[in-house]
Design a protein around this nucleic acid. Structure first.
Length: 419
RNA sequence: GGAGAGGUGGCCGAGCGGUCGAAGGCGCUCGCCUGCUAAGCGAGUAGGGGGUUUGUAGCUCCCUCGAGGGUUCAAAUCCCUCCCUCUCCGCCA
């Protein structure tokens, strides 16, 4: 959610940002609506003030005088109720629109509207050359008997997978290995709830915009979190943080659930895009002036992890039009996938500035009034995607897959061989 | 799932229709005092929004005592709905 003050003082800033996202939003209507609401509310406030002081007088009066005063107060009260129901209706209409406005785009976010407009920042690592025809992760998973999507489909439908045998162990190693790094970097490890309230989804900007991507548990008014970003962000909802404690950094592990609505026919093979996967996620709460630096730090941590996994990758600055509602700027790390002969996203980190903090009311003590903090999130390990990137990039001519050195202390084996 | 208790400021806790955004205590901040520390003394100490204003100053108004609705001239106090927490019993990883 944006600062309403901005709508009053410089709506052109908002317009320019919406343009960069490729959105055409008639701000004029909002400006007028907001001014009207504020004016009417102020009038009602003034009337309420008189009513209240009259009310105090009533307490001291008796007899006729009292009855007359009560009469006057009653009509004031009725008038105020009318005014309030009008402003409440207007205000609801206003916020319905206001809540859908995405965050202001950072000046340094890449120009453009689509994924193709991402700005490549760098490429790191050697793309593997195979002297045989490399297999894709789906067939590798099947021949090695470590990923089973067929039986998953029978059991739960499409876009699910079983991790089996050494792939299952690989997941646990990835979790422990990444957590060790993140704890070392000062993050507080967390295992977070996956069932969340609407408030948390609204607060993080997934609602109302991406509602169709989220699984719902209607009997209990809960939702399955699409990422632990949601539960980590809302962890400090409604709190006023001590600036001396900032930045607060967390590493959350959880399963993630996504309906993948509107992706029919896309990435149908294997487990690149599934309804459920596990993920280690980083999340930071910072002072406003520190969020840009924090964003680079998170990217740095992500790169370090991908490098240790010996995966070739590139970093892209995501185009303005391709940003999520809450992000002002986003970096994706895309790992090389031999079977697609291209780079595909395996991590993503966003600076959401004060957009989520405003919705979740997360502030910090500051002289002259509390200030909103900034929030940032980034993928440490999207386990499914990392596993398939490892399978594809580290496959050998004999059909086996060699594990990266960094994981060996966590694994108990150094390769996955065909059965 | 059954029975009961309760949700008030950073915390504890009083208030149960009017002058209450709210006694008292603890904590915290600033000042005084005291060789130092402790103790003591004094002052301050919730959040959000609006108006005024060059103003993150001052003044002022409104809202907020779990959330939402209602009764009333007037609600922390009365009524309704919901949410949450705690205790006991049952069930359960």
């Amino acid at each position: 959610m944006l600062d309403i003050a901005l709508l009053r003082t410089s709506p052109e800033v908002i317009s320019r940002s919406m343009e960069r996202r490729g959105l055409d939003i008639p701000l004029g209507d909002l400006v007028g609506m907001e001014a009207r609401i504020r004016k009417l509310r102020h009038q009602a406030d003034q009337l309420r003030a008189s009513q209240r002081s009259l009310g105090k007088e009533i307490a001291t009066l008796t007899g006729d005088q009292k009855q007359q005063a009560i009469q006057r107060a009653r009509s004031m009260s009725n008038r105020i109720k009318e005014m309030n129901s009008q402003t409440n209706a207007d205000s609801e209409e206003f916020y319905q629109q206001w809540h859908t406005l995405p965050n202001l785009v950072d000046p340094t976010a890449a120009e453009g509207l689509t994924e193709e407009d991402s700005e490549e920042i760098k490429r790191v690592g050697e793309i593997p050359r195979f002297d045989f025809q490399p297999a894709d992760h789906d067939s590798l998973g099947e021949t090695l008997d470590v990923i089973d999507t067929k039986r998953a489909a029978k059991m739960a439908g499409s876009r699910f997978g079983y991790l089996k045998g050494k792939a299952a162990l690989l997941e646990f190693a990835l979790i422990q290995w990444s957590m060790d790094h993140l704890v070392e970097a000062g993050l507080v490890p967390m295992v977070t709830p996956v069932l969340v309230r609407e408030m948390a989804l609204f607060g993080t900007g997934f609602f109302p915009g991406d509602r169709q991507q989220v699984y719902e548990v209607p009997a209990d008014d809960l939702f399955l979190a699409a990422t632990s970003e949601i539960s980590l962000a809302a962890y400090h909802a409604d709190e006023i943080l001590n600036p001396d404690d900032l930045p607060l950094r967390y590493a959350g592990f959880s399963s993630c659930f996504r309906r993948e609505a509107g992706t029919h026919g896309k990435d149908t093979r294997g487990i690149f895009r599934v309804h459920q996967f596990d993920k280690v996620e980083m999340f930071s709460f910072t002072r406003a002036e520190d969020s840009a630096t924090e964003h680079e730090r998170i990217l740095g941590l992500e790169e370090k992890l991908v490098q240790e996994l010996e995966l070739p990758y590139r970093v892209v600055n995501v185009a303005a039009g391709d940003l999520g509602a809450s992000a002002a700027k986003k970096y994706d790390i895309e790992a090389w996938f031999p079977s697609w002969n291209t780079y595909r996203e395996i991590t993503s980190c966003s600076n959401t500035t004060d957009y989520q903090a405003r919705r979740l009311r997360i502030r910090m003590k500051a002289p002259g009034g509390n200030r909103l903090v900034h929030t940032l999130n980034g993928t440490a390990v999207a386990i499914g995607r990392v596993i398939i990137a490892l399978l594809e990039n580290h496959q050998q001519s004999d059909g086996s897959v060699v594990m990266p050195k960094a994981l060996l202390p966590y694994l108990g084996f150094d390769r996955i061989d065909p059965p």
